[in-house]
Design a protein around this nucleic acid. Structure first.
Lengths: 189, 189
DNA sequence: TCGTAACTGCGAACGACGTTTGCAGTTTAC
DNA sequence: GTAAACTGCAAACGTCGTTCGCAGTTACGA
C-alpha cells in the first residue's frame, strides 16, 4: 500500500495503524480486511514494495566485488530513504518476491566466485548488515554522544569521544573499505 | 526485572506485557508503575540486565584481534540465549551503563591499534552486527528454505539452494573468519 | 498515644490498537 | 427478474499501555 508507506516515511512504523491507513484512504478500518488478511500482511507488502526500489540491478560486468559494492550502496540508499525498513527486515515473513529477486541478483554477481553456497549466503547477509549499519550510523552516533550519562567510569570511551569527529568523506570510505575487506575475506580462500 | 526476562525468554518480547509481568509477580499491572515510568523503561532495564552477562571482559593480553573475537563470541552467546535482545538493540534508549561498559572494554582492547576513533566505533558496530547475524543464522536459513515460493524465477538462488548445506563446523569457521577479515580491514592501514 | 502527613499497592477506567461480525447496498449470472 | 455472490463499513470485542483515585500502611512530631 502506497498510503501505508507514506505514513511510515512521515511518522515511523508505529504510526502505521489500520485506522490511520484507512483514514488516509478515506474509508473505515474494517474495509482494509477485504484486501489484507492482517496488519502483518500489510507490513510484508510494504517491505516488498520498497525492495523493488533496488532495481534495476547492475549488470555483472567487470569485477564482481565492484558490482557487489554497487548493490550494497543501493541497499543503503533504500534504508536511508525508509528508516522503518530496518524494523521490518528482521521478520522472516518479510522475504517476498522482490527480496528474493535481489538475493538472486547478488548470487548472479557472485557466480564467477569459487566459494561454497553457504559462504555466499553469509556474504549477502553480511552485506545487508553493513549497509543497514551505515544507513543508521548518523542517528546512532548522535544518540550515543548526547546520552546524559556520566562517562567517567568509561575512560576509553571518554577519550575516544573527546577526539575530533571524522569527516563525512572518511565515513564513506569506511563503508566501502569495510564491505570490500569483509566480502573478500568471506569469499576468497 | 528478572520476571520480565523470564517471560521474554519463554514466549518472546511481545508476551512481555505489563499485565503478564505483574501476574508473574502476583500483583496488579498498575503496581509496576511505582517502580517503572513506562514499558519502554522496563525494556531498557531488560537490555542492560542481559548486557551484564557479557562480563567478565577478557584481559587485553596477547593479540588484540584474538581478544576482540572473544568479545564477539560472548556477544553471540548472549544473543543466542536471549533472541529478543535483537529487537531491543535497535532502540537508542537501550544504551545503558552495561552497554557502555562493554563499549569501553572494546575500546580498551583496541587501545594499541593505530586508527581514528571513528573507525573504532564502526568496528564495534560491525562486530555487533556480525555477532547478531550469526546468532540468528539458523532461524533465518530455515525460514528461507521453507518459504512456499516458486523459485523458478530465481535461477541462481535455486542453484545455490540445491547444493548440500554446509556443515555446522564450517559455519563456526565462517564467523571467526568474517570477523577477523572485517576488523583487520577496518582497523589497519 | 494520638493525628497527620507521606507513601504504597491496586481495582477500575480510558483511549487506542488489531480484528471479527453482521448487515445493508451493489454487482453478477442465469 | 430473481438469486447468489461480492463489497464497504459501523459497531463491538478483547487486549494493550497508562492514569486516577482510594483504601491501607508507615513515619514522625506533639
Amino acid at each position: 500500500m502506497t498510503a501505508a508507506i507514506a505514513i511510515a516515511d512521515a511518522d515511523g512504523l508505529a504510526a502505521v495503524s489500520m485506522r490511520a491507513v484507512a483514514a488516509r484512504l478515506e474509508t473505515g478500518a474494517a474495509s482494509l480486511y477485504r484486501y489484507l488478511s492482517s496488519r502483518d500482511d500489510l507490513l510484508d507488502l510494504m517491505a516488498d514494495r520498497v525492495a523493488a526500489e533496488l532495481r534495476p540491478y547492475p549488470e555483472p560486468d567487470g569485477d564482481w566485488l565492484d558490482t557487489l559494492v554497487r548493490l550494497a550502496r543501493a541497499q543503503r540508499a533504500v534504508h536511508e530513504r525508509h528508516p522503518w525498513l530496518f524494523e521490518l527486515s528482521q521478520r522472516a515473513s518479510a522475504i517476498g518476491p522482490e527480496a528474493l529477486a535481489f538475493f538472486d541478483a547478488c548470487l548472479r554477481v557472485m557466480a564467477p566466485v569459487e566459494a561454497p553456497s553457504a559462504a555466499k549466503f553469509e556474504a549477502i547477509g553480511m552485506m545487508n548488515g553493513v549497509a543497514i549499519l551505515f544507513a543508521r550510523k548518523r542517528a546512532a552516533g548522535e544518540s550515543l554522544t548526547f546520552v546524559g550519562f556520566d562517562l567517567t567510569p568509561y575512560p576509553h570511551l571518554l577519550a575516544a569521544l573527546s577526539r575530533p569527529a571524522a569527516t563525512p568523506a572518511a565515513a564513506m570510505d569506511l563503508f566501502e573499505r569495510a564491505l570490500r575487506s569483509l566480502l573478500r575475506g568471506l569469499l576468497t580462500a
